[in-house]
Structure formats: structure tokens, C-alpha cells
Design a protein around this nucleic acid. Structure first.
Ligand SMILES: NC(=O)c1ccc[n+]([C@@H]2O[C@H](COP(=O)([O-])OP(=O)(O)OC[C@H]3O[C@@H](n4cnc5c(N)ncnc54)[C@H](O)[C@@H]3O)[C@@H](O)[C@H]2O)c1
Ligand SMILES: NC(=O)c1ccc[n+]([C@@H]2O[C@H](COP(=O)([O-])OP(=O)(O)OC[C@H]3O[C@@H](n4cnc5c(N)ncnc54)[C@H](O)[C@@H]3O)[C@@H](O)[C@H]2O)c1
Lengths: 210, 210
DNA sequence: TGAATAATGTGAATAATATCACATTATTAG
DNA sequence: CTAATAATGTGATATTATTCACATTATTCA
């Protein structure tokens, strides 16, 4: 499916296109031009065509893109036409809010394990039926349940140690919400989410114009 | 403070440098080279020097950067040496978790207003002392309390309408957690946070290698 | 059928961004 | 004081990403 070296920005945009296309699908739109899609996504139409061109030809000249087909083709491109199993590590404020959230399931992500270190939390059952396990059992359970991606929502001070455990357990993808830069081997791909960095960008724009 | 057209990526990296520098400060490091900082931030050393060079000369040749000075200089660059007032709109799972979180205060962001539409929630007092107001009072309160940035944590279906209200109230910066692309006038700067897009990137990497 | 129209796919041009490489400046030690 | 060393700041270069512009292909309608 992958032919050349693909810009990371292209991958991110494909996700955005896909979400917009899924909304269009719900509104019973079945064909769309790169121009209209571009407007909705806030990008240049040629950008969309170029991004897709890395992976093949998906449109019909003179017509546009069939929405439902394109959604599936983007899913193929991104590897989303299969389930992905997630483990949440740290069931505090943020972890609990996330695991309760329906958007993950909707996009094919399934929480299959949850870990904490607080004795009060171990053994508790989450709204989705999952039971919180002690982080000592992390390696065993992650292998058993074939978890693919680990989500870190522990305090920052624990994030590196949790990351190490995840890597040891064979995890190759981590979504890190702790506000620290964690170090992992090359085989493991980390994405960071730090809201305050986004706020900093806003502050900069408000201070010094667009 | 701003001299040329600055890449957006530079602004984001400056935030990251700043956070790493703040950690170093806590560890009583008082001077650091671009090389060591680069390693900790996962970037190229020349990148750091170039990013800073857009705004002036902050280091000492042959020595490096004085950590505490550089933190302050980056704060000046980003417009962070002043308080920023935030309003949270939507006090559900996510909004409540966020407003309870200490990291915002730590970085100079202060919640000064909170809005919801659920009668059960209006009038409730949050852990930080803030009282939840009805979203009908949004414009008045935002002006009164000099809110600078609005945070949207309502369901996706409400996000555009909330954004419209924020813009009407004079807000020029929005942090949007709802998984939709909101449309605002050019005067308003929007940053989106969508965790599932990050998961998609991870899925892609796991499926098709680095 | 054929002309008019619409919209893709893509090579070429442009723009933006990152990296290299080294001249410059500060410090240390002999 | 001078040589050796360290690390910044920056012009030049390389790389990457975006946009343009148009040839190509599909559709519609006279
Ligand atoms: N809450 C937010 O809105 C928010 C926003 C931005 C970033 N963050 C970051 O997300 C992380 C979690 O935030 P929170 O507000 O949920 O904190 P929290 O204190 O409510 O939750 C942390 C949880 O991690 C558990 N934990 C601690 N050490 C652990 C370990 N070694 N293994 C497994 N579990 C462990 C704790 O028992 C607790 O349940 C923090 O790093 C925070 O900076 C949170
Ligand atoms: N919870 C998560 O972890 C998570 C993760 C990713 C994205 N999101 C997104 O964040 C948003 C909120 O998620 P949540 O889980 O907190 O949902 P939620 O349903 O728990 O909370 C939504 C809150 O918004 C309030 N609300 C509804 N309409 C409103 C309006 N017009 N004005 C003001 N308040 C209004 C509701 O009363 C409710 O309190 C959603 O868009 C969701 O997709 C949430």
C-alpha cells in the first residue's frame, strides 16, 4: 500500500479528510470534488489530490470522489480496516474521562486493558466493563490480550517508567498525555498530546497577530 | 519582538524547548548547550539555534544558554509573561477533568468562567471555586471577566454554535476539543485537539513501518 | 455524435523548512 | 598571553512540502 516516502503531514491530513467524509456520508452526500472537500477541511484542493496520489488513483475525472469508497480507501491507507486494541495506564481524571468516551470505539479503537497503581482502584470495574489491573501485571496482560497501543495518563513523573514497561511488553505505539518527552527505542512510535502547547500557540497569535 | 515571518512549527517547538528547560531548571541545571537540549527534545541542534535566531541572540558562544534566562526569553517571545484567562464551555467528562487539572495554572492559564446548558449543572461550584453559568450568559460574563481564550468541550453537534457565540463575545482564540472543523472569521485563531487523529498516525506507523 | 463542461492526476515551479559547515566568540589551562 | 577547546549564530545548501497549470478523462446535452 505504501509506495514512496510519505510526508507525515499527509497522514495527518488523510485522517482529517476521512472524518469530514464520514460526516458527509451521514448527510447522504455520495460524491464530492476535491474543491468542496478542501474548503470544508481548510486546505488547498491540489493538496488533497497530491496526498491521495501518493497511494493511487481514487477519483473519477470530471466527477469527483465517491464518498463511501474514499472513506474505505483512506482506511486501507492508514491501516484502519481492522480493530486496534488499546491499554490505558493511569485511571485518574483524564484516563477515566477518555475511557468513558465513545469516539474511540466509533473509530475502531477498543480498550482491552486498564492499569493503575492505586490499591483503591485495582479491581474496580469501569463503565465499559473493563476491570482495572495493577500495573505489575502489565506485561502479562498486554501480551495475553494482544494490546497494540498504550495510552499514558499517569503523572509526568511516572511516564518514562510506564513507557519502559510498555516497550518491554512489546508495545510499538504509545499515545502520551503526560507533559514530558519520553524516550523509547526506534521500533516504538510515540505521539504526544499536550494541550498547554496548543494554548501557547494561541497566546502567541493573540499577542503578535496572525 | 516579532521580526520576520515565523514558521508555525517554530512556535510549537519553542513551547517544547521551554517545557524541557523548565524541567532542567527544577534539576538545578543552569547552563545547557543546543546539542544537549536538542537530544532531550528530539530535534536537530541547528534547529534550536535557528528557531531562536528568528528572535535574537540568547546564548553565549562557547558556553551555551543560561536556562532560567532562556525560559524567560521564550516566554517573552510567545507572549506568556502575563496571565491568560480561559473560559470552559461544556462541563462534561472532559471539561471537568481539564478544569480540575493543575497544569494550566502552572503555565499561567487561569479558568475565569465556565458554561454549560444542563440545568442540573448551572450554579454548581467547581473544585477551583468557579461557578458554572448558563451559556446564555456567555457574552456578558466573558466581557466582564476579560476572558481571552475559549475552550470548547461540548458535543460535536454544539461546537459550531458555541464557537459563534464566543466570536460574538469578542474571543479571538479557541481551543476546540470537539471532533469537528469549526468555521470562524480570520480574526479568530483556532487550535484543534483530536486524540483519534493521533491514534490514526500510530495505526499507520504500526501497519506500514516507520 | 460531438461540443461544452467539469474535475481529476501530475510534472514543473515555487515556497517553506531543515541541516550543514564554518567563522565567530567565550572559556580554560598551561 | 596564547593555544586548545567548546558552542553559538548564520550564510549556503539540501530537503521537503505546497501550489500552479494544464493535459487527460468522464459526463451532459443539443
Ligand atoms: N487531567 C487533565 O485534564 C490533563 C490535561 C493535560 C495533561 N494531563 C496529564 O495527564 C496525566 C494524568 O492527569 P490526571 O489529571 O488524570 O492525573 P490523576 O492524578 O488524576 O491520575 C493519575 C493516575 O495515574 C495513577 N498512577 C500513578 N502512578 C502510576 C503508575 N506508575 N502506573 C500506573 N498508574 C499510575 C494514579 O493512581 C492516578 O490514578 C498527567 O501527566 C497530566 O499532566 C492531564
Ligand atoms: N471525553 C473525552 O475523553 C473526549 C475525548 C476526545 C474528544 N472529546 C470531545 O469533547 C467533547 C466533550 O466530551 P465529553 O465526554 O466531556 O462529553 P459530555 O457529554 O460528558 O459533556 C458535554 C457537556 O457539554 C454540555 N453542553 C451541551 N451543549 C452545550 C451548549 N450548547 N453549551 C454549553 N454546554 C453544552 C453538556 O451539558 C455536557 O455537560 C465532545 O465533543 C467529545 O467528542 C472528548
Amino acid at each position: 500500500m505504501k509506495f514512496a516516502k510519505i510526508p507525515m503531514a499527509t497522514i495527518v491530513r488523510l485522517s482529517i479528510y476521512m472524518r469530514t467524509l464520514q460526516e458527509l456520508l451521514e448527510d447522504d452526500v455520495d460524491v464530492i470534488s476535491s474543491e468542496r472537500l478542501a474548503k470544508q477541511c481548510g486546505v488547498n484542493p491540489a493538496q488533497i489530490r497530491k496526498d491521495l496520489a501518493y497511494f493511487g488513483e481514487f477519483g473519477v475525472r470530471g466527477v469527483g470522489y465517491r464518498v463511501n469508497e474514499l472513506v474505505n480507501q483512506i482506511k486501507d491507507i492508514l491501516g484502519l480496516n481492522r480493530p486496534w486494541n488499546l491499554a490505558m495506564v493511569g485511571l485518574g481524571n483524564l484516563g477515566s474521562a477518555l475511557i468513558r468516551h465513545g469516539n474511540f470505539i466509533k473509530h475502531g479503537y477498543m480498550f482491552t486493558a486498564a492499569f493503575d497503581i492505586d490499591p483503591q482502584k485495582i479491581g474496580k470495574r469501569l463503565p465499559n466493563g473493563l476491570i482495572i489491573n495493577h500495573v505489575d501485571e502489565l506485561e502479562e496482560i498486554i501480551k495475553q490480550r494482544e494490546v497494540h497501543v498504550g495510552i499514558i495518563t499517569t503523572p509526568a513523573s511516572e511516564a518514562q517508567s510506564v513507557a519502559n514497561q510498555l516497550v518491554l511488553a512489546g508495545i510499538n505505539g504509545i499515545l502520551n498525555f503526560a507533559p514530558v518527552q519520553i524516550q523509547v527505542p526506534d521500533c516504538c512510535h510515540v505521539e504526544n498530546v499536550d494541550f498547554t502547547i496548543k494554548l501557547d500557540s494561541i497566546a502567541y497569535h493573540l499577542s503578535f497577530g496572525s
